[in-house]
Each structure stands twice: as structure tokens, then as C-alpha cells.
Design a protein around this nucleic acid. Structure first.
Lengths: 151, 151
DNA sequence: TTAAGTTATTGCATTTTGCAAGTTCTGCAA
DNA sequence: TTGCAGAACTTGCAAAATGCAATAACTTAA
């Protein structure tokens, strides 16, 4: 087996772990992904078929490398994504959504719809228009697709 | 007319206004409410009938006063909430959701559902259980209720 | 004009973010 | 077995955001 980096980041996250601010489910959710970056990584995996660290880095929002590592570690620790050695290229990793991660789909779609509705500078592209026409179909289609990848 | 505080916070927000990180609607949404507090304020107004600064302060997550003022100003600036002098008590303000704010309802409900599903320490209470049974009914019921208050 | 209730600011310590540079790790091929 | 290239990760430092406690400003009503 290959020795990979020790997960300092996860250790920090785990050790410094604050209790949830409250037992409100909204608050607990935000404790996990309530920031400007986590859901963008989820989006990349969920809607854009991105798989790896280097692909996430290329997104137009230009996430910094340390933030990306940190968020990926947290998402993995929280069992939202899982990380495996890539079958095609053994020196890289691929990330995929767990069931828990896939269940973020409706949140992501709703956020996308709201964003498109209220920002002139966010023209609806293909997916955005589909959402406008039949949101629940988009969700169920993606759900099916993501679930079968999930196996 | 009463001179109220000048809105330094809003000025800062406006002046320091970064362009959106990208034209992705998800990213644009997160530019506005992608943090640990904004949606909790929305929740308080939307689901808990809270109206004023002092009520928001009392929530169990214990938001700091400066953060609360800052977020309220941003939400108001973004036209998600609107602020008026309270009819009952003229020395206080009440906040209410605009149409844009009300449209955050599905996002809030989905986040709530996900949070309750994946946190043992977030027992589903009345609303959580209703969501489990018939999410879209909960959404349309609240939508109706919020919209008539709005109207 | 003052008291009571409400909302907002300030200063400081701490934490998180952003950025740029450099380091470590892995597989593959010489 | 070494060296290289691609990929993932860390580090150091500056800047920004957060948390906290104390204080200030504002409004109404008496």
C-alpha cells in the first residue's frame, strides 16, 4: 500500500471540533457546508462530472489550493464525498459522492434556480432552463444518474 | 422623519463589492448567503415568526451583535428582507421577507430536511416530520402563508 | 429631559481566507 | 534505481472575517 500524506487537516478539524451550534437541522447543515466553497466543489462533482483535485482547481471561481484541500478533507470526513485512487491513472485520486452527498442534489438545484432567477448576470444555460421548465424532473434524472454511478 | 444610524455597514459592503466570483448561479447565490449565519436569520423570519433584531439575538446559536447587524444590512441591501418601523412599538424595527426572500423557502426546507436526515442530534420536531411526510405540501403551505403576509 | 427599550458601533484577540511559493508523493520509463 | 513529470499537499505571511464584551446612539413615551 502507498503511504499517502497524513491527514493533518482532518486531524485539526476533528480535534478542534466544536459541538454544533444548536440542534437545529438547518444550523447543523450550515456547520458542515455553510461557506462559500464547499457547495461549489459538490457542484463540480455533481453537475459537471469533475473528479479530481486538479480539475476542481481549474474552476472559474479560482479556489486556493489550501482551501480546496481543507474542504475536500472536511467533505470526506463528513462522509459526503469519498476518495479513491483513480483506476486510469494510479498517481491521482478521484472523488465521488456518497449517498449523503447525492442527497445534497435538491439543495444544489434550488440554490441554482434561485441564483439564476435573481441575477441578471447569470444567464440560464441548458440546465438552468430545464430547471425552469420542470425542476422535479431534473432532480429525479440527476438522482438516477448519480445513483447508478454510485452503484 | 427620524434620523437613524447611517449605514456604514452597507456602505462597506457596497464599496468593497467584489464582482461575483463567476456567472454560475450557484456561486452567485453563495456570494450572497454562503456563510454560517445568513440563512439562520432567514430561518428565524421564515419559520419562527421572528421579527426584530432583539429576537434574532435570542436564538440559540448566539449570533454576535456586530455580525447580526452586518448580515441584516446585507440582506436588506440585497433586497431579501425589508426593514420597517414596527407599528406596535415605534422605537423598534421589524423585518420581513421580500418576494426574493420568500423564494429562499425551498432552499431552507431542503437544507432542513438534509440536516435532520443526517444528524442524530437533530431530532425531527413537528415541522421536520411534516417535511418527511410531504415536503412539497409543506413548501406550498408556507409559501401561501408567507405570501399573504407579504401581500 | 429623562428613563427604558432597542439597535448599532468599537476595540481587540482569534480564526479563517487568500495568495504565492515550495515540497512531497506516485507511477512510469530510461 | 534513478530521474522525471504530473498530481496532491503544505507553508508562511498578509489581509479579512469572526467572536466577544463593553459602550454608544437612537427612539418613544412619560
Amino acid at each position: 500500500m502507498y503511504k499517502r500524506y497524513c491527514k493533518l487537516q482532518v486531524l485539526y478539524y476533528f480535534c478542534g471540533m466544536k459541538k454544533n451550534r444548536s440542534d437545529c437541522p438547518i444550523s447543523c447543515s450550515l456547520d458542515v457546508f455553510g461557506d462559500k466553497w464547499s457547495l461549489l466543489i459538490i457542484r463540480d462533482i455533481m453537475l459537471r462530472g469533475k473528479l479530481s483535485y486538479s480539475e476542481f482547481l481549474k474552476s472559474e471561481e479560482k479556489i486556493a489550493t489550501n482551501i480546496l484541500v481543507n474542504r475536500l478533507n472536511i467533505l470526506e470526513f463528513e462522509n459526503i464525498v469519498s476518495k479513491k485512487v483513480s483506476p486510469e491513472n494510479k498517481s491521482k485520486f478521484v472523488y465521488s459522492l456518497t449517498k449523503k452527498g447525492i442527497d445534497l442534489l435538491p439543495i444544489v438545484i434550488e440554490i441554482m434556480d434561485w441564483g439564476a432567477k435573481y441575477n441578471e448576470n447569470c444567464p440560464r444555460k441548458e440546465l438552468g432552463k430545464k430547471i425552469q421548465v420542470d425542476k422535479s424532473k431534473v432532480i429525479s434524472d440527476y438522482l438516477e444518474k448519480l445513483t447508478e454511478e454510485f452503484g
